[in-house]
């Protein structure tokens, strides 16, 4: 019950936040010089002032900005994100086509980073001066100093030239035949490199944080109590210590959701992943305002939902948060 109130409260905050995001994005994008009329005129190889005015009138661009904004916001509230001049498709259906690919990539990368990062952190914390601990430190240093696109390109070169075991571009192989299972496998194979690339930075962050938090927890009184009970080392580490050291890691993961989404734009571009990132890049080049705002709107939504999930997971982990209400 209590959890329902929380969700309702958070969702209503989220709605207000989204409205602000829409208004702000709309204003910011319109402040930038140039619009779709310029692009169309460019494609036509030039246009007279009358033709330009005509195009602007067709798309409602001649109205005052506040009227355009009002129309846009009321359309968004009805689920209509506008029409993409460039893709000649409603933005909503355009995004609906691309969103699943991005979500698949982002969520998988987050989970891989969380799982592997935590595991490495735990193992490193058990022997803070052991070789594994040093390797984790090295991975972490590499992970957050190497830019995502660089890691991506290096992997791309490595796997296209030297060890071509994974596909380096796209999401599906159209030549694959067979049932749904072979399609799932095909997508999984295509995901390997983008997921490694995208998760590398976050994996580095999470493993370092988990190592530090785990080391602190292992020195606490209740771990001594667990030892005094005669529990095995793995029960002490994975049952008693892990759950206590996950808090900071999950909190960070929640904060990093926006970074994962923006990282996805780069990774998708490098690996030609057919998601929102590739679409965003195309739309920016084409000055396709409705699509850009639509993508920003959905990115904001992904971040907000990610944060809400983080809060729920934290409550699940730590009963003290549950009672604070």
């Amino acid at each position: 019950m209590e959890i329902l109130t929380l969700i309702v409260k958070r969702v209503s905050y989220a709605a207000m936040l989204l409205l602000a995001v829409v208004v702000l994005n709309f204003i910011l994008i319109n402040l930038a010089p140039g619009d779709i009329a310029d692009t169309i005129a460019g494609d036509m190889g030039g246009a007279t002032a009358e033709q330009m005015a005509e195009i602007r009138a067709d798309y409602g661009l001649d109205l005052p900005l506040w009227q355009q904004l009002f129309r846009y916001v009321s359309n968004v509230m009805q689920g209509d994100l506008g029409y993409s001049y460039f893709h000649t498709q409603p933005v909503t259906s355009l995004i609906a086509e691309r969103l699943p690919a991005t979500l698949l990539l982002v969520i998988t990368a987050q989970l891989v980073a969380l799982f592997v990062g935590t595991l490495l952190g735990v193992l490193a914390a058990r022997k803070p001066n052991g070789w594994l601990s040093h390797i984790v430190t090295l991975i972490a240093l590499f992970g957050y100093s190497a830019p995502v696109f660089w890691t991506g390109i290096m992997l791309l070169i490595m796997f296209s030239l030297w060890i071509p075991i994974f596909p380096v571009a796209g999401m599906v192989d159209v030549t694959i035949e067979g049932g749904w299972w072979s399609h799932v496998l095909d997508i999984a194979r295509h995901m390997v490199l983008p997921v490694i690339t995208l998760s590398s930075i976050f994996l580095a962050l999470y493993s370092r944080l988990c190592r530090a938090s785990m080391m602190e927890v292992l020195g606490s009184d209740y771990i001594r109590t667990a030892r005094a009970k005669g529990l095995s080392e793995s029960q002490i580490v994975f049952k008693h210590a892990l759950k206590n050291s996950l808090g900071p890691v999950v909190t960070l993961a929640g904060l990093q959701f926006s970074a994962v989404v923006s990282g996805a734009v780069l990774v998708e571009t490098v690996f030609s992943w057919p998601g929102l990132g590739t679409l965003a890049l195309q739309s920016i080049i084409a000055r396709d305002t409705p699509t850009i705002i639509g993508i920003l709107f959905f990115s904001a939504m992904v971040v907000i939902v990610g944060n809400l999930l983080t809060d729920l997971v934290l409550r699940l982990i730590d009963p003290r948060i549950r009672n604070r209400a």
């Binding site: 009184d221 209740y222 109590t225 667990a226 005094a228 206590n244």
Partner: peptide
């Protein structure tokens, strides 16, 4: 480990922090 908590057990000075909070 077989003996601890079974044949010989121990209570500590800090009850506030000796139990696992989660």
């Amino acid at each position: 480990r077989e003996i601890r908590g079974n044949d010989i057990s121990m209570i500590f000075q800090e009850p506030m922090t000796s139990l696992n909070p989660v």
